[in-house]
Design a protein around this nucleic acid. Structure first.
Length: 598
RNA sequence: GCCCUUGUAGCUCAGCAGGUAGAGCACUUCCUUGGUAAGGAAGAGGUCACCGGUUCAAGUCCGGUCGAGGGCUCCA
């Protein structure tokens, strides 16, 4: 369902109406409470309140109960349009509503304070049910009988700033969810449970993939433990080889650079709040790099460039450091130090469409190799205010991006005016195994840096020209990519990525010798194999391997040792029975080759 | 950074009218040699995040600091 369709849907009305009911319930409990705004959101709704005290989980339960009682009375929703004066009278003791009404009065914003499309004048309307009237443009259900009291639930309370501005009043936001049928609510709650089980922070700990030691090391700084490190190594090796096979040059650059570099690039003007403070080296200021581009540009400028050199593709697994406010750090998904699979393309204008086509295809190839199949792109075009570069350049670049998306047959939305000041871009989001979207890849034009660094090449006309520059990251950052990968596969990675691909499970001590022989052979065949020679019974060895999500469990006992076989159990629980060793090796290697799971 | 919640053994958690720390799993050792998700026993492991206060006495109450979780804002 698209955003537009959602806003037309019955479900949207249910949620919007549930938000009003919640506001009524809260005001009944806190007559002096102030209400802010309460829109439907994906999967539910929220409402912001300014209350005399902090809400507890018991309050949530009480509010929820009250909501059910209100709903059962099946009040009808009545819409009424009114003048600003009258609205101000009605909401005289609701300062947030007054502010919204004033916004509507002067025009340009809707009742949530969001900017309206030019030329649209807002109509002031209220919706009233029972004792509660709210400034609202609707739509709502006709009456509360349309809401199933068993299909709503309040989820949590969180802080939120009035109008998202941290300098203004902080409000209490209650999040709730509402559905048409109780079963849908149940399914939704089950999805939340499933998401919790897949949480990469939990799995990262359980599977020994990575750790973050905020106390001793620092928040947002990731330690890749051996198993996670191995997965990263395999992923990087694959990707780097693909890059080399596709016309990229692999480059390396240092982690710091002189302040002059960042002045030229403009980062110290526009990006300083995301950069760490300067290091003093022999009286000179150096900065930790938040981006790799200036380095690649210096590499470009190291030589006189000819139009014949293009396209030039510099790729680097570049580790960058960006200041993120402590409250936003989140596992691997939001960190302070991370490694981008970064690259910069330099080309001529006439090559640009082809270059975009290439990079998008290459990007999809990489993502598909890791098991992502569903993509959604967002094309962001020139912002209406302040941007660099000529309009013709922007149009040509936007056209190239859009046509590449069409050729690649990727569904996309256009975010008019959503581009950065320095160029249009494509952000590519992937959907994971349980339907959540994650942004990984970005392909972005840059009309700014070539100018700032005065980059040039000699064209066929013998004159100097400015090259086109394209930034791109496919996996985005290794950290975020890994986090998404963990959640996508719930830790059960495809065989080629598993740190341990097969666990040998000797039934008794006397079978360890045979297991060692088998392990040695499988290692020679190129598989990553371990032996569980612990004192546990077979059942527990299987349990341990299963919990580690090891794809193949190879049970060996008297029978197997005698017949030179292994009894194969898959992590799916399927038991394939005894198979000759080379048959197993061929089977596992095929799964590796095809980047399949089991 | 801000608001709410929160911080006890490697992990998951109990301990609560304030009276000198507990369980399960994991770990070590021993017994057991067992055919597809937990065999048994013993042992070791914690200055209850840190600093300060109240008290005869603080894991437990109060204040501060440092972390974590859910959000806001932002983003690879």
């Amino acid at each position: 369902m698209s955003k537009k369709e959602y806003e037309q849907s019955h479900l949207y009305k249910i949620r919007h109406s549930a938000a009003h009911v919640m506001a009524q319930a809260v005001l009944e409990m806190f007559p002096k409470g102030k209400v802010a705004i309460g829109p439907p959101i994906e999967d539910g709704f929220y409402y912001d309140f300014d209350l005399p005290r902090a809400l507890t989980t018991d309050d949530l339960k009480a509010i929820e109960k009250r909501m059910r009682n209100i709903i059962k009375k099946r009040h009808t929703f009545a819409r009424r349009e009114l003048s600003a004066e009258e609205a101000k009278e009605i909401f005289a003791d609701q300062p947030y509503k007054i502010e919204l009404i004033e916004g509507l009065e002067t025009g340009g914003v809707d009742e949530y304070g969001e900017a309206l499309p030019a030329g649209e004048t807002p109509v002031i309307s209220i919706y009233k049910h029972d004792t509660f009237a709210d400034l609202c443009k609707g739509p709502h259900v006709e009456n509360l009988g349309k809401i199933n009291p068993k299909a709503i639930k309040l989820l949590n309370v969180a802080g939120a700033y009035w109008r998202g501005d941290e300098n203004r009043q902080q409000l209490q936001r209650i999040y709730g969810t509402a559905w048409e049928k109780p079963q849908e609510l149940k399914d939704y709650l089950a999805r939340l449970e499933e998401a919790k089980k897949r949480d990469h922070r939990k799995l990262g700990k359980e599977l020994g993939l990575f750790s973050i030691d905020a106390e001793n090391l620092g928040g947002g700084l990731v330690l890749w433990q051996p198993k996670g490190g191995l997965i990263r190594h395999i992923a990087e090796e694959f990707c780097k080889n693909e890059h080399l096979a596709n016309g990229y040059d692999m480059v390396y650059s240092p982690h710091i650079g002189k302040s002059a570099l960042w002045e030229t690039s403009g980062h110290l003007d526009f990006y300083k709040e995301s950069m760490y403070s300067a290091l003093d080296i022999d009286g000179q200021e150096y900065y930790l790099k938040p981006m790799n581009c200036p380095f690649h540009i210096l590499m470009y400028k190291n030589d006189l460039r000819s139009y014949r050199d293009f396209p030039l593709r510099y790729a680097e697994w570049g580790t960058v450091y960006r200041y993120e406010r402590s409250g936003v750090l989140h596992g691997l998904l939001r960190v302070r130090g991370f490694t981008q699979d970064d690259a910069h393309h330099f080309c001529r204008e006439d090559q640009m469409p082809e270059e975009i086509d290439f990079v998008l295809k290459f990007c999809l190839h990489i993502l598909r190799s890791f098991g992502f199949e569903n993509f959604h792109a967002y094309l962001s075009t020139q912002p209406p205010e302040k941007s660099v570069g000529e309009a013709a350049q922007w149009r040509a670049a936007e056209k190239a991006l859009e046509e590449a998306l069409q050729r690649a047959n990727i569904p996309y939305d256009v975010d008019e005016g959503g581009g950065a000041f320095y160029g249009p871009k494509i952000d590519l989001k992937i959907s994971d195994a349980i339907g959540r979207e994650w942004q990984l890849s970005t392909i972005q034009f840059d009309f700014n840096l070539p100018e700032r660094f005065d980059m040039s090449y000699i064209g066929s006309d013998g004159k100097e020209h400015r090259p086109y520059m394209i930034h791109r990251a496919l996996m985005g950052s290794m950290e975020r990519f890994f986090g998404v990968l963990i959640e996508h596969f719930a830790g059960a990675f495809p065989v080629w990525l598993m740190p341990t691909q097969a666990m040998l499970i000797p039934i008794a001590d006397r079978h360890v010798k045979y297991a060692e022989k088998v392990a040695a052979q499988l290692k020679i065949a190129g598989l990553r194999v371990e032996i569980d020679d612990s004192n546990d019974r077979m059942g527990n060895k299987i349990r341990k391997a299963q919990k580690q999500k090891i794809p193949y469990m190879l049970v060996v006992g008297d029978k197997e040792a005698e017949e030179n076989t292994v009894a194969i159990r898959l992590r799916s629980g399927e038991n394939l029975g005894p198979k000759p060793l080379d048959e197993f090796a061929a089977m596992a290697l095929e799964a590796v080759e095809e980047k399949r799971s089991v």
